[in-house]
């Protein structure tokens, strides 16, 4: 970036606030977190130090890697499910619904849940999936089951369902905007050349919406990876995710050094995912 001398005051006036903001509220806290990761837990609290025991503990005690893998599995399930459900919805909005009014209304309905408290939405799933919940009552009234099933709530399936519901708007929005930006004449050209609707989708629409899918998948995966509410509300005894472990280290265990080391590891993982996502985006991108 080359700064014109004349514009320097204007540049500073405009950008000093966001720069200071990100320095003080993002960069500095990250540095503090990384350095606390080398501190030492010492009852009753912890002391500054520079040692690697926290990292050694993370990699030798199987509980931490186990939870990270479980978290990655849940995040992957949520991402795949959200893509499968979100893409057709975005497609419907972008291509099938002709009336702009109806389209806006439907788009709004996708986003409106974001305005409702996350906790409330997660809690609602408890009343749907519970033993005496809506789903069980419905199945019983249809005569499909005699007694309520308890397989819907307090397990990893319930977590995947809840998290998919909660994060699906983040999947639909980028896919919708990528679909909307596809020039309609490309689709018409494909059809004029005798390619059927399915072929057109595979050869034109899907490749051009790849960036949207990738953006949605990245956001959904990262948001799920960091979630700690769904395990508490709808997860069972095997539902602990990495954010719960982190919360516990900063809470009950009062072991901020181990918590910081874990948080640094999670930060690296998320950065790796972002890097991978941008690599995939670049290799697959079609320049119009």
């Amino acid at each position: 970036m080359k700064l014109d001398r004349r514009n320097a005051p204007g540049f500073l006036a405009l950008f000093s606030l966001p720069l200071i903001w990100s320095l003080l509220l993002l960069i500095v806290p990250y540095l503090i977190m990384i350095s606390v990761g080398f501190w030492l837990r010492k009852y009753p609290t912890f002391v500054p130090d520079f040692q690697f025991a926290n990292y050694a503990q993370i990699f030798t005690d199987p509980q931490y890697i186990g939870v990270i893998l479980r978290t990655a599995k849940i995040a992957a399930c949520v991402t795949v499910l959200a893509t499968i459900l979100g893409y057709p919805l975005a497609y419907l909005l972008a291509f099938t619904v002709r009336s702009p009014g109806l389209r806006n209304l439907m788009y709004l309905m996708v986003i409106v849940p974001l305005w409702v408290s996350y906790l409330l939405r997660a809690y609602t799933w408890k009343t749907i999936l519970g033993t005496n919940g809506v789903l069980n009552s419905f199945l019983q009234s249809l005569g499909l089951i005699d007694a309520p099933l308890d397989i819907f709530l307090y397990n990893q399936t319930a977590m995947v369902i809840t998290l998919t519901y909660i994060f699906i708007p983040f999947m639909v929005m980028p896919i919708f905007s990528s679909l909307e930006n596809i020039p309609r004449n490309l689709i018409e050209a494909s059809e004029d050349l005798g390619i059927g609707p399915f072929g057109t989708f595979l050869k034109v629409v899907l490749p051009l919406s790849w960036g949207g899918i990738l953006a949605g998948a990245t956001v959904t995966f990262c948001l799920t990876f960091g979630d700690f509410v769904a395990p508490v509300l709808v997860g069972g005894p095997d539902g602990t995710m990495i954010a719960n472990v982190l919360q516990n280290q900063f809470g009950a265990a009062l072991n901020w050094p181990l918590g910081s080391a874990l948080a640094t590891l999670v930060l690296l993982l998320v950065m790796a995912i972002l890097w991978l996502s941008s690599r995939l985006d670049r290799t697959a991108r079609i320049t119009l």
Partner: peptide, 16 residues
Amino acid sequence: RLDKYIEVWNAVKAAP
């Protein structure tokens, strides 16, 4: 050994 107890309980919760 407070730390040890909390670690054991966390390991139980983290187990599959």
